[in-house]
Each structure stands twice: as C-alpha cells, then as structure tokens.
Nucleic acid binder design. Structure first.
Lengths: 156, 156
DNA sequence: CCCGATTAGGTTGCGCGCAATTTAGTTGTG
DNA sequence: CACAACTAAATTGCGCGCAACCTAATCGGG
C-alpha cells in the first residue's frame, strides 16, 4: 500500500486544476473585451455595487491591497474605472465605473453563462458544487484564523 | 430582477476562491519545508514516479514548459531534484529526486491529511467534491479543445 | 543523404497573488 | 494639543501561470 497521497486523489489538487481550467476557458472570451479574469471580477463587483472602496473590493474578491492596487491601476489606464480619494476620510479611495466600464456589462454578463454551459452540468449541479466549495473555503478560513502558525503547539 | 450574475453566485468564482484558500492553508506548512505549493506538487509527482520527463511532469500537473522549467530550476538549486539529459533522445530531460528530495516525503506526505481535516469534511465528502471538480475540469477541457476560439461562429 | 516538419525544453514578457514594508491620514488617550 | 496606536492604500520583491517565441534534436519523404 502507498502511504504517500497521489496527486490525482487530492481534492486540493482538483480545486487548483479546476480553477485554472475555468480561467483558461474565460480567457479567449475575455480577450475580446481586453480583460483578464481578475479584472472581470472587479467589474462584476462594481456592476453589482459601484463606488466600493479598495478594501471592500478586496473583501469581495478575497484579495489584498497588494493585488488589488495594481489591478485597479491597469483598469484605470484602460479607462474602465476611476479612483476617487474620499473627502470625508482622505485615506479611503472609492472605485467608480466609467461609462465604458459600465457599458461592458452588456457583453460581460453573458460570459458566465457560456462557461456554465461548457461545464456540461445542470444548474442544480453547479449550485451544489458552488455551495460545497464555499463551505470548504469557509472551513479552511476558520481553521486558519484559529491556528495562526499551525503544527507546532501553542504560541509563545 | 438582476440579470448580471453576482460574484457570490458563481461556481467559477467559488473555485477560484477555494483554490487560493487551500493554497493559503498549505503555505505555512510548506514554509517549514522551504517549498511552495507548485513545488510540492512536483515532488508529489516524483514521489509517485521518479524520473519523469519535463513534459510528463507538465501533463501530471497540467502546466506548460514555461511554468515547469523555472520551477524545476529552483527545485534543482534547492538540491531536491536533478535534471538529466536523456542519452537516447537528447531533447528529453528526465527529473530525478535527490536523497534530500526523497527524504522530504516523510514529512510532506502528511500535510494533505492536515489540510483535509481542516476542511471539516468527511473523507466521503472530499472524494465526492474531488470527483465533481474533476468532472467539471474534464468537460471544460473538452469544450476548449472543441472550440479553439469560441463565440464567433465558424473559423475562416 | 538532404531538408522541411515536428517535438522537447527553455526563455521572455506580463499579470496576478501574497508577504512585507512604506506612506499618509485618523483616532484615542492624557 | 501632543503623541502613540491604528487604519487605508500603495509599493516592492518573488514565485507562479501562460502566451509567444527560440533553439536544438529527431523524424519523414524524396
């Protein structure tokens, strides 16, 4: 018997692979809009709620400022969003769609459906898979919060 | 009613998030071995079958040479693997574990179990999730192979 | 044997993703 | 008011991940 877990048996590896596969499927579709998948996620968040702060965007996408800041810089350079320093609290920056950014919603919002149909799964299956993944993610985040540096007993 | 799909409703976004969450959980555990998650995957593949070619490794991990080559360079610099030009076909390079690389299996092979338990899911649930993800990935890859540049009707 | 096509692996360039740090603005306490 | 603690965003550095390209070796016809 083999004690070492095999690559193909790992649920984590399946997530890693599935994630890259789906982004690969998005790529040619998003290329025509001049977007990457993370950039598309930012726009989706803003189509839902315009004027989010950088931190709120990071929370929605589960990304930190080190990823979001340059991402927004590129979206701003592309003329799709605008950053405004808040007058109330000068530390905060809100992100707003430009007319071009808002206009992309029409073409952008149908892409997820294309990808969904490519999966060959029913709506119910996709929902169930999504919920299971979110359950997994939640549990993992909870564990991480509980064990800042796990494996070596208690903290000093 | 909102036609634009919301971030949280998307199965794809759940995969993207779950993948990063699980890698984040691996990170502190792998840090102690001086490894990243993709490097760990390479070692897992070699623990299973030593002496794979670069291409075979790429197939196992679903990564292309542009990713695998520098990854192997770092693993070789760390003294964990060795690259050998094949005598039969001088184009081929096989990757072999060093003693240090092989010795890491003892500590490395228990990490996936830690992560599995952190998910709070039963073994059966994880298997089911893994299979569903692999089914999804397969379907998506099949669709991609069938539609080289989708969305705009037939090729020229 | 020669030469075009194919294949294996590597390099370059760019956009993430994240840890660590920096800068600037705000808040809380005396 | 002063000043330390905190917070928001940006910057830096590094390792992927992938497209595009390059080089070298092999294969396949004629």
């Amino acid at each position: 018997m083999d004690v070492t877990p095999r690559l193909r048996e790992q649920a984590c590896f399946a997530m890693y692979t599935a994630s890259r596969a789906v982004i690969g499927l998005y790529r040619p579709l998003l290329d025509r809009l001049g977007l990457t998948y993370p950039q598309f996620l930012v726009l989706m968040a803003l189509w839902e709620t315009d004027g989010l702060t950088v931190t709120a965007l990071g929370d929605a996408l589960q990304l930190d400022s080190g990823t979001v800041s340059p991402l927004l810089k590129r979206l701003e350079a592309a003329g799709l969003v605008e950053r405004r320093r808040e007058s109330g609290d000068e530390r905060r920056v809100t992100v707003h769609l430009t007319a071009d950014g808002a206009a992309l919603e029409r073409q952008g919002c149908e892409i997820p459906q294309i990808v969904g149909s490519a999966s060959g799964m029913s709506y119910e299956e996709l929902i169930a898979l999504r919920d299971k993944l979110n359950e997994f993610t939640e549990a993992v985040r909870g564990y991480q919060a509980a064990e800042p540096s796990p494996g070596r007993g208690a903290a000093s």
